[in-house]
């Protein structure tokens, strides 16, 4: 019998107390739907989707800042595709584009540097969102821009790290599916620390077999009542992770407080450019005033992100907030929990 099938059988045979497993990574949310894994689980295993989609936890004010740069300062915004449709207080970047803003979708922050280098007459800002996985690429972009003396490139940062978020989320779930690609950078040490604080989880990959294996591990371990930290994504995630990448982050960025949409401010959970790299900090370069976003007060993205409610329990879900006309970020991002629930009609 295939290992994948064995894993599925272990998960399906689980007859212990009801458990809640939180996948914190948006790509997991996506993969779990795509592989139809939720339908395979017994009733006593509940999968809840946590705040691991960088787009979903990005505050309305960040979009407002980007719109301000694009429309007031006439900069060319370079961004990952998902951010384009996120509603700001007045408009999304797609809305700004319709008003003449220059918005360019890129695959990599390094492409944004190249674009800046090829268009010296254009001021280019990269919208730097993302967790530990994505931060090294953004830092590399800053390093390259500095080395090549490219002066028309800067970052608007909203980067975040996950370790403190787990501590805030403690109690929301019995075990976490830890994000595979974040773990590729961080390594396993942080999960040992979390284990010592009573937080359990398994590092999980993205194929159907990998997700089922991680769930099987949780099912096997949870009975003992002891906290655990396991790696079910060994072909990618090593003990030490990516030391060169972490060193680069350390050199270029420093921790700061960060506002998570719906969750609030988590001390030390954000990353911003160090003073030495002020020339690449869009907020400083363009002398940006403080911009406070005003999200729709009825939007309950925060409760959805914390696993407190299911998307359909939000009063806006499916009525005024749809994938065609999203109100909250969780509906916009294709990784967003609401979007996934809406599209798959669960």
């Amino acid at each position: 019998m295939s290992a994948e099938k064995t894993a599925a059988e272990i998960v399906q045979a689980y007859d212990g107390r009801p458990i809640r497993v939180m996948e914190v990574c948006g790509t997991h949310t996506h993969a779990i739907f795509e592989h139809g894994i939720r339908n395979m689980l017994p009733d006593n295993i509940q999968l809840i989707s946590g705040p691991g989609c960088p787009v979903c936890v990005t505050e309305t004010g960040f979009i407002d800042e980007a719109v301000w740069l694009a429309l007031e300062k006439n900069v060319t915004i370079t961004t990952f595709g998902d951010l384009v449709r996120i509603p700001g207080t007045e408009m999304s970047l797609a809305g700004a584009r319709a008003k003449g803003a220059k918005i360019r979708i890129v695959y990599s922050p390094l492409d944004a540097v190249n674009y800046a280098s090829e268009h010296p007459e254009t001021n280019v800002v990269f919208l730097s969102v993302g967790f530990e996985t994505t931060v090294p690429a953004a830092c590399l972009a800053v390093k390259r821009a500095m080395e090549l003396g490219i002066r028309n490139f800067s970052l608007l940062t909203a980067n975040k790290t996950m370790d403190r978020a787990y501590r805030v989320l403690k109690g929301s779930a019995d075990a976490f599916l830890y994000p595979g690609h974040v773990s590729a950078v961080t390594g396993m040490k942080i999960y040992e620390e979390l284990k010592n604080e009573g937080i359990s989880g398994v590092v999980c990959g993205f194929t159907a077999g990998e997700i089922l294996t991680a769930l099987a591990m949780i099912v096997k371990k949870i009975g003992s009542g002891e906290p655990f930290a396991e790696n079910a994504y060994t072909r990618v995630v090593t003990e030490e992770g990516m030391p060169i990448g972490r060193k680069l982050i350390e050199e270029i960025m420093e921790p700061c407080e960060a506002a998570w949409r719906g969750i609030g401010v988590i001390e030390g959970s954000g990353l911003k450019l160090r003073e030495k790299y002020a020339a690449c900090d869009a907020r400083l370069v363009y002398d940006m005033p403080e911009i406070q976003g005003r999200p729709n007060p009825a939007c309950r993205c925060g409760d959805v992100l914390m696993g407190r409610i299911k998307p359909y329990e939000c009063p806006l879900f499916g009525k005024v907030c749809t994938t065609e006309h999203p109100v909250g970020a969780c509906m916009v991002s294709s990784e967003g929990t609401c979007s996934a629930y809406y599209k798959y009609n669960i």
Partner: peptide, 21 residues
């Protein structure tokens, strides 16, 4: 799906935007 489970094809959305993070 390849593992024999069933899921819905996400209905068509608007503009096709690459998903990176």
């Amino acid at each position: 799906t390849a593992i024999g489970s069933e899921t819905l094809l996400p209905p068509p959305g608007g503009e096709l935007l690459p998903r990176i993070c």
